[in-house]
Design a protein around this nucleic acid. Structure first.
Lengths: 186, 186
DNA sequence: ACCTGAACACCGTTCAAGT
DNA sequence: ACCTGAACACCGTTCAAGT
């Protein structure tokens, strides 16, 4: 049986989950698959391309939950933001991976496109929707990336003295709510 | 005359300005300075340390402007945010460099600490201040990083089809204002 | 069609040894 | 004190040649 794109993506996801983005190299990936590095390039354009696929996969189950319109608890945007955060936290350096992918190709991530749709539905103008979605996206990715870096640092060695252990869940929702309140106040 | 920490930092800043973060390697830096790579490690702990110093320098002139309390035009937080953005935009990949530094050591960047101070002065509670500052910081760094990535991509090759050329200045201030309005509505 | 072998052009960091 | 030389353990990517 020959190597598969799926196998490559799965092995990459494994490295990400267990060792983080710093350990995810094409060579390490090839080693894990028992194959020469060059073999990967038959199935995948390059590393960026691979990271893009990983980013999509990290956010994949988010939309499934969100399509469900029956949930009546709270603001839908708030819920989607929380779901995205959960998905990012489920994978080591998830926020960094998605940030990279998002930087190179926004619009490619459905979960984030959905943010827009929901804002649009809430009755904002087109421009408010676009800029509002960008504001929220930057906040979400930045906040979770900080959480994960913090977690990595305190797991590995010392983090620089200040162990300001804020409640991350609360802080996150505080930020989301602030942005949403601000958007509606426009 | 022997090599100096200052020379190293200045040469690094030069590479950053003209070629970007992707070209800023310790070996390239050594080559530019006419010295062996190992020599750098006498003056600088490691690359992360160097990037931290660069981040501080990128944001250095921001505080100078902001200490001036005589300016009466508009919200001081809004002005500071705009000043930070300007400082970041002045250097290639400035937002990425500062994001890296901020991830590894928040509190180390005075300009960003000032954001907190200003929010505190505006009469928010301690928690609102901390979380509000985080929200704003993530937005600022994320928004400018996106601007610069976009600029890099359109300068280098093709950016993926969608040349959504929004007005970045307006979009940025829109985001800042939304967050600020949201904070005050709490 | 799919992969190996081998190369090209790089990295960050350490450290004995020199001056 | 400060730097060189040389090494260690890596990178991403390409591509002729094999099967």
């Amino acid at each position: 049986m020959s190597l598969t794109r799926r196998q490559i993506v799965d092995a990459a996801m494994d490295i990400l989950r267990h060792y983080g983005l710093g350990d995810l190299s094409m060579r390490r990936l090839a080693r894990d698959l028992g194959v020469q590095p060059g073999a990967l390039y038959w199935h995948v354009k390059n590393k960026q391309d691979l990271l893009g696929v990983l980013a999509e996969q990290i956010l994949a189950e988010v939309d499934a939950d969100t399509v469900d319109p029956a949930a009546t608890d709270g603001d839908p945007v708030r819920r989607l933001a929380a779901d995205i955060r959960t998905a990012l936290l489920a994978v080591r350096d998830g926020a960094d991976v998605v940030s990279l992918a998002h930087a190179l190709n926004p619009e490619a991530l459905p979960a984030i496109a959905t943010l827009r749709t929901l804002l649009q539905d809430a009755g904002l103008t087109d421009q408010q929707t676009r800029w509002g979605a960008r504001t929220l996206t930057h906040f979400i990715l930045g906040a979770v990336a900080e959480e994960q870096t913090h977690a990595d640092l305190s797991a590995a060695g010392l983090l620089p003295e200040n162990v300001r252990q804020d409640n991350d869940d609360e802080a996150f929702l505080f930020g989301v709510d602030a942005v949403l309140a601000g958007l509606r106040a426009r």
